[in-house]
């Protein structure tokens, strides 16, 4: 019964340095006047991916459709997700918060959740080198808008990669679900980290499935999600060859890329898979060990839920900033004050 008592003994020290760096940036926040930001999360997939359109149809030779049979073996399913928000910004810098979640569907089907964060960082051009180290190169020669955007993206990636590293190292013989894709582009400098994650995955006999909720991949002008095969789900279509053929080295793909339609009537998703076993077998084990909601693994949905910032989270973080003596200005209210009495809102 040992597995029933299992819990994540996530070493806080693992993230101590991360939070410490954040804490150090607070010193320069005192008495600042900043603008409140909208709470839109960063949608990383859009930034990750390069638009790729396949000018081929499904029945052409390089699209191999594989049927998936529901597996029998129990497997632990672990999902990781992170998110970030800009809380406030000024001409000098931006306050960014990131948080992540690991959700484990254990062998007895019970669920364990571990949330990490929120971490808060005040990023300026001055302290970016100190905060990001080697990654600060990405922020060079960017305008202010891009600087804030990439700072947010890098922080999110940093946390996500750390959580992924931790998970693949900690767990064995498990199906590990990532949010997004397993690719690197010219903007992505987490090559070492990805390779380290994949190496550990092999060592610990884990299987990685990275689900993308949205994708810029298209086949014959149709978005990937709505492409159908003549076969009944569950099935997967291997797009790796087609992707390699089409992208002409613009992106590097790790493992294989699939279109996975796992439930009748649901959408298809792009899934980047780094596997020890046959893809159809691993997808079959996922079907056995994790319920799917609209063809998407529930564990990954939970990880997304626990890592997403709610409106109340945003208010709380803004309250924290106020406690740090930051004056928050609301651009909308200024607009209201100036124009509403005249134009009636």
């Amino acid at each position: 019964m040992e597995h029933l008592q299992h819990h994540i003994d996530l070493d806080e020290g693992f993230f101590k340095a991360f939070s410490e760096v954040g804490r150090q940036t607070f010193a320069s926040l005192d008495s600042l006047r900043m603008y409140n930001c909208s709470r839109e999360d960063l949608v990383r997939e859009y930034l990750d991916e390069v638009y790729i359109g396949f000018n081929s149809t499904l029945d052409e030779y390089f699209f191999e459709v594989q049927e998936v049979e529901i597996g029998r073996e129990p497997r632990k399913v672990i999902a990781i997700d992170t998110s970030s928000i800009k809380i406030a910004e000024s001409a000098r810098g931006v306050v960014i918060s990131v948080k992540g979640a690991i959700v484990i569907r254990d062998l007895d089907k019970s669920t364990i959740v571990k949330t990490v964060g929120p971490f808060i960082f005040y990023i300026t051009r001055k302290n970016s080198k100190k905060v990001f180290g080697e990654y600060s190169e990405l922020l060079k020669s960017t305008n202010r808008y891009d600087f804030y955007l990439y700072a947010q993206k890098i922080l999110t990636e940093l946390l996500e990669k750390r959580l992924q590293e931790y998970t693949v190292e900690k767990y064995k013989d498990s199906i590990i679900l990532f949010d997004g894709s397993l690719t690197t582009t010219t903007f992505n400098c987490f090559l070492d980290s990805i390779e380290k994650i994949l190496k550990k995955t092999l060592e610990n006999k884990n299987e990685i499935l990275a689900f993308s909720k949205t994708s810029f991949l298209q086949i014959s002008g149709e978005p990937l999600q709505i492409i159908h095969s003549e076969k009944n789900p569950p099935y997967i279509i291997d797009l790796t060859k087609a992707l390699e053929y089409s992208n002409l080295g613009r992106i590097r793909v790790y493992g294989r890329v699939y279109l996975a339609r796992l439930v009748e009537g649901s959408l298809g998703y792009r899934v980047d898979a780094y596997l020890q076993n046959e893809a159809s077998t691993v997808f079959g084990l996922l079907l056995k060990n994790d319920p799917l909601i609209y063809g998407y693994p529930e564990t990954l949905i939970l990880a997304h839920d626990y890592s997403t910032f709610t409106k109340l989270d945003t208010i709380t973080l803004q309250t924290m900033l106020k406690k740090m003596n930051v004056e928050l200005l609301y651009p909308e209210s200024v607009r209201d004050i100036l124009f509403n009495p005249l134009d009636g809102g």
């Binding site: 996530l10 669920t111 571990k114 939970l302």
Partner: peptide, 24 residues
Amino acid sequence: SSEDVKKISMIDPYSVGSLLAKLR
């Protein structure tokens, strides 16, 4: 939805959770 979760643990470096609970 958390009611079905067996265990939830948190690493909350700045104790945002307690402030959030108060606001909530």
